[in-house]
Structure formats: C-alpha cells, structure tokens
C-alpha cells in the first residue's frame, strides 16, 4: 500500500535546456562581434562614439517608445480579435462563420502597407461623427488616422492568427468533445477544460512566429508619419549631414535599428517557446502545415 508521500503529481518539464543556453551564448557573442568589430571594420563607424549618440539618442528613445506603445496596443488586440474570428470560423452557425471567413480572407489577402495607407486616408470617415466628437475631440485628425492605421495592422495580424486558432480548434479530436459530454460536463466546461487547453497548446508555436511578424509590421507605420523607431531614425538621417559625421554613419543608425528589432523579436519568440515548453504534453504535437 503506497504511503501518502509516495504519490506525487507529475512535475512540469524543464524550461531551459543546454542547447538553449549554448545558442544564446553563441548569439550574444556573434552579435557583439558583428556590431562592435566586423561592421565597423567594413563600414568605418563605431557604435561607441559619443558624438553619434549625442544626436541620435533622443530620436532613438522617442522612436523606441513609440514602437513599444504600438506593440503593447496591438498584440493583445490582435490576439483577442484573432481568437474570436478563429472561433467564429469553426462555428456551424453561418452567421458567425461566413462573415469571419470574409474578414480573414480580405485582411490576409491585402498587404499591410496598402491597409495602412488606406486606413490612414479614410479611416477617420469610418468612425461615426458623434463618437469622434465625444471621445476624440482633443486629437488631431492626423493622429487619429495613424491610430486607425495601427489598428489596421492589428487586424491584418489577427486574420493570420484567426487561421492559427482555427487550426488549433480543428486539431482537437472530436471524440474528446463527445467524451466530455458523456461525463456530464456542460458545454462551457468542455470548452474550458478540454478544448481550449489543447487549442492553446497547439496554437503557441505558430503564434510566436506571428507575434514576431506583428512587431516587424509596426515599422510600416513609418510610411505615414507614425511615431516609431524607423520613422524617427529616418528623421535623424535628415539632419545627419549637418552633424559633421560622414555619411557612412547611416549604417550605424540602421545597425542599431536592426539590432533593436532583432532583440525584441528574439525575446518575444523565445519567450513564447519557453511558454510552449512549460505547457508541453506528449501527444499534442504542433500543427503541421
């Protein structure tokens, strides 16, 4: 007869493996080499120059916060929208599934730049005048337009996420839903304890990817005076000649920008992969494409 202490529930899997650490170290070393040794050697600039940072810092910080702001706004928005649309797509009720299909196909078929430009051009017309007056009276028309364009990027990403969630839903074997019913679980309980946990686990890998795409897509707002990293960096390039630094320092700017985006996407994707690993259960493999 087992004693009470002999029985333990299963332990969660290890989060950080040796390979993860090796790759991380490799990346940091290679990155540092590239940024401080190799590129300067080729292009003849140095990221350690105070003169450079004197002029660039304020552009960089403004731009970075702008980008963070958009990412913080759009990530949750796109997930919620994407999840709802994905759920609607698998519904048997056509009132939900058909409009959702239309939404997904339209927003996936259009390139984000086109969405951004047209959203900024006539996005404000889409908001009924009374709402504009009540909530957004204090904002300039141009700022509202950029905001709508940002939301358009979120909607573009949500369309891709809808497909990811849809596949997640459909990958849960139907028999398990039946089994949940047969146990006496109510439909919402079945959803919460059987379907959603599996959908979530199955969707995580492609989702991390999509988040990286979303973060990179915020750069498109630079095309229409959005306040984010790329736009601000271009502003700096405008005054670069006047600063006395040789023109080759353009590369310094772009290197910093590239590294910044790389770090952000890396953190987000690897973070999600850690999450993946934490919830991984044998038998629930990733959706195959």
């Amino acid at each position: 007869m087992e004693t009470a202490t002999a029985f333990k529930l299963r332990e969660p899997p290890k989060l950080v493996t040796r390979i993860t650490l090796i790759h991380l170290i490799e990346m940091v070393v290679a990155g540092l080499l590239m940024v401080f040794v190799i590129l300067p050697a080729i292009f003849n600039f140095s990221l350690l120059s105070t003169q450079f940072w004197n002029i660039y810092t304020r552009f960089y910080v403004t731009g970075l916060f702008g980008t963070f702001f958009y990412v913080a706004l759009l990530l949750p928005l796109s997930v919620v929208l994407g999840f709802l649309m994905g759920w609607a797509r698998v519904s048997r009720v056509r009132i939900f599934s058909w409009p959702a299909s239309l939404y997904v196909n339209v927003f996936r078929g259009m390139p984000p730049l086109i969405l951004v430009i047209f959203a900024s051009l006539f996005g404000t017309s889409l908001i009924p005048q009374p709402i504009l007056d009540r909530f957004f009276a204090g904002f300039r028309r141009g700022d509202i337009a950029v905001g709508i364009a940002a939301i358009a990027i979120g909607m573009h990403s949500s369309a891709y996420q809808a497909e990811i969630f849809r596949a997640g839903f459909q990958s849960v074997p139907k028999g398990q839903v039946e089994a949940a019913q047969a146990l006496g679980l109510r439909p919402w309980q079945g959803m919460r304890h059987v379907i959603l946990p599996q959908t979530f686990r199955l969707s995580l890998p492609p989702l991390g990817n999509e988040f990286a795409v979303l973060i990179k897509d915020t750069s498109i707002l630079a095309a229409i005076t959005g306040i984010e990293l790329v736009a601000k960096s271009r502003d700096l390039l405008g005054i670069l000649p006047a600063s006395g630094l040789p023109i080759v320092w353009i590369f310094a700017v772009w290197t910093v920008v590239a590294v910044t985006y790389f770090v952000i996407t890396y953190i987000v994707t690897r973070g999600l992969r850690l999450l993946e690993r934490k919830f991984h259960t044998p038998g629930l493999e990733a959706i195959s494409l």
Partner: peptide, 25 residues
C-alpha cells in the same frame, strides 16, 4: 543560421532602407 535569423528578425522595411543606404554610400 545566423543569416536566416537576422533576415527573419528584422523588418523588411529596415532591410530595404539598409540596402538603399548601401547604394547611397
């Protein structure tokens, strides 16, 4: 691997502007 990671980790817009800078210089 590094090449692929860099391409995938940076926005296309940045890559385009980088290429443009390369040509300008």
């Amino acid at each position: 691997d590094g090449f692929v990671e860099i391409i995938r980790g940076t926005p296309l817009l940045v890559q385009i502007l980088f290429a443009a800078s390369f040509f300008v210089v």
